Amino acid sequence: MSRLLRAWRARVDRASIPELRGPGYRSRGRLSQADVARLTGVSEGWYRALETGAHRDFSDAFLLRVAAALHLNETETLTLFLGISGRRPPTDPPPTHTTLDPALLALLRHQAPHPAYLTDAAWNVVAANAPMAEWFPWVKGPRPNLMRWGLTSREAREQVLDWEESCARVYLAMLRVASCQDQGNTELQELLREVLAADAVCRRIWAEGYEVAEHHDGRRFRLRLPCHQGAEVLVTTQMFLPLQSPGLRFVIVTPLTP
């Protein structure tokens, strides 16, 4: 990490930084450790400790100021945080996806004949391919939401076999993790309140209060859907996180041979 910090500092031209212009300051050459300390509002010794690899409790705010002073890009800032603190830099809330990436939508369509869909952080279904709409027509309705459908609808109880164990407990375990992880997501918190207010079985499961799950990737579900004329179908789900669309989940439903 020390070598990277020195290299990043060496490539910055002092003349490009207005804060370092003026009487008493040299206007040419590369940044010194003292320059970076001035730009980040710390002592030269404190910044030197960072660059030499000394163990300190460097705050996120300080590391972000270092990243700005050294003109680091997003990947370099990530490397700085991981190398110094072992954690990722703080991020803004995921953006609201009013316009979906056309390439992502094309990929969704290309999953046919397998159902596939996109959800946001609160499990709103923001896009679905034709097979998904055929299997689960509710995705074409107003405000389609995976958790709301799976936990509160009579349809889900009829179509997902062994509903309480394979669906309700799994989905509530996912909500338990998400509600702790994203406490500032008011839509997610309201969804949880709505589910618990609507269903006594969900309230009972929630009150047990110990099952947790981050996702349903690889889970198996036994379904009996009208589009299959009532025949039982065993499926698994695979979930992917598109790096260019943070906050979205890309899920494919794949039939399995029993």
Rank of each mutant, 00 (worst) to 15 (best):
T79Q: 14
A37S: 10
E51V: 07
F81R: 00
T77M: 03
Y47D: 03
E51K: 03
G22H: 05
H71K: 13
F81N: 02
T75C: 08
A54K: 15
A15N: 04
A15E: 05
S27G: 12
A37C: 08
I17E: 06
A37F: 08
A54Q: 15
T52C: 10
Q33T: 12
A69S: 06
A37R: 05
G45V: 11
A61F: 13
A69I: 04
L82Q: 15
A37L: 07
T77G: 04
F58P: 04
S16A: 12
F62G: 01
H55W: 12
F81H: 00
V42T: 11
H71M: 00
L82C: 12
S43Y: 12
R30G: 11
E51F: 02
Q33G: 14
T40W: 03
E76A: 02
E51R: 06
L72T: 00
S85A: 13
R21V: 00
S59N: 10
L39C: 04
R48H: 14
H71R: 15
T79C: 02
G41H: 13
R28E: 11
V36G: 02
I17V: 13
R48C: 11
L64Q: 14
W46L: 07
G53R: 04
L82N: 14
H55C: 08
T40M: 07
A69N: 01
S43R: 11
V36T: 04
L82D: 09
L82Y: 13
E76T: 03
A49Q: 15
A49T: 11
A34E: 12
S43D: 07
L63D: 00
V42R: 08
F81P: 01
F62D: 01
G53P: 09
F62R: 00
H55K: 15
S32L: 05
D57C: 08
L82A: 12
V36M: 06
R26W: 04
D57S: 14
I17D: 03
L70I: 08
N73I: 01
A54E: 13
A61G: 14
P23M: 02
L70P: 07
S16V: 00
F58E: 03
L20I: 04
E74Q: 12
L78I: 11
G24P: 06
F58M: 11
G41T: 06
R26M: 01
V36C: 03
S43I: 09
A37G: 07
G83A: 10
R56Q: 15
S32E: 06
R48E: 09
F62Y: 10
E74M: 06
I17A: 06
A15G: 10
R30Y: 06
W46D: 01
D35F: 04
H55D: 13
I17W: 06
N73K: 04
A37V: 06
Q33W: 05
L31V: 09
T75N: 10
L31C: 09
T79E: 11
